[in-house]
Design a protein around this nucleic acid. Structure first.
Lengths: 139, 139
DNA sequence: ATCATTGCAAATGATTTGCATTCGC
DNA sequence: GCGAATGCAAATCATTTGCAATGAT
């Protein structure tokens, strides 16, 4: 198991405090934050870090395949340190984004590639609905 | 089978040439155009129509549930007159967006709602890969 | 020492908005 | 005629870019 610094070096990315902080934050959260959310959450510990750096860092991490960008249909992207192509489920009430285990669904890739003769690379699967918590609360 | 004008009136939307043209174009294409693409394709026949009108019309049609907005991860939205929640498959080479028949996949909704106890409303399923045509062509 | 990364400010580009004019009903 | 829809221009907002200063190797 490589350290974050090791992972970065492996991809020929220089190890900077900003990159460490962003990757660390992403791998210790399950909220699938947007760039703005990452920026705000690191403001306290890294007050000089700019939003542009957050974007540039995320771009570098996505290109290095250390992080994936997900698009739940909001106005901004969200990021996930889990780079496997797993489905997500989004609560339309509280807007939380949850992971679904990769094996929660049958092997769709095989099905789709058989039907379409595409050479499939990846997929984005999003389910929308109301989470148990929000179902319970009066609105 | 209602005419386009009938469909619009049914939703209390005024029937204008712009709305007819946009809806007609959307229901006779399978390219899942963006607002910009719609605007350009209607330029000849409707030279006075503004891009803002295209956006406002699409917004009205989406709210009226006559059209759906899809988000394949590009910088702009695409639109589809097929409002059923069907999966899409996108060629990462030529950027075409294709429909998959709704029954091409097993019933995932039931599976997911059983696992998560969400009350599911809809889903967005995107598969990415290289289409047969692009596989054949040298790049 | 070199070259990538940072941080600021300015630019971009899709989409939205304000508002006077026009048009559907 | 009334109120909604159009079209223009200006505004917005996420993201990107240019560039000088800084920092990692």
């Amino acid at each position: 198991m490589l350290s974050t610094a090791g992972l970065l070096r492996e991809r020929h990315l220089k190890v900077t405090p900003q990159r460490l902080a962003i990757f660390h934050m992403l791998s210790h959260t399950n909220i699938h934050p947007s760039a703005e959310m990452i920026y705000n959450s690191l403001r306290e510990t890294h007050p000089t870090m700019s939003l542009a750096t957050v974007y540039k860092t995320l771009d570098a991490l996505v290109k290095a395949e250390l992080v994936q960008q997900i698009n739940v249909g909001e106005d901004s992207f969200r990021y996930d340190a889990n780079i496997t192509s797993h489905p997500h489920i989004i609560c339309t009430c509280c807007h939380q984004v949850f992971d679904l285990e990769e094996d929660a669904l049958p092997n769709l890739k095989a099905l789709v590639s058989e039907k379409t003769h595409f050479k499939l690379s990846h997929e984005q699967l999003y389910f929308y609905g109301v989470c148990p918590d929000c179902q319970g609360s009066v609105h």
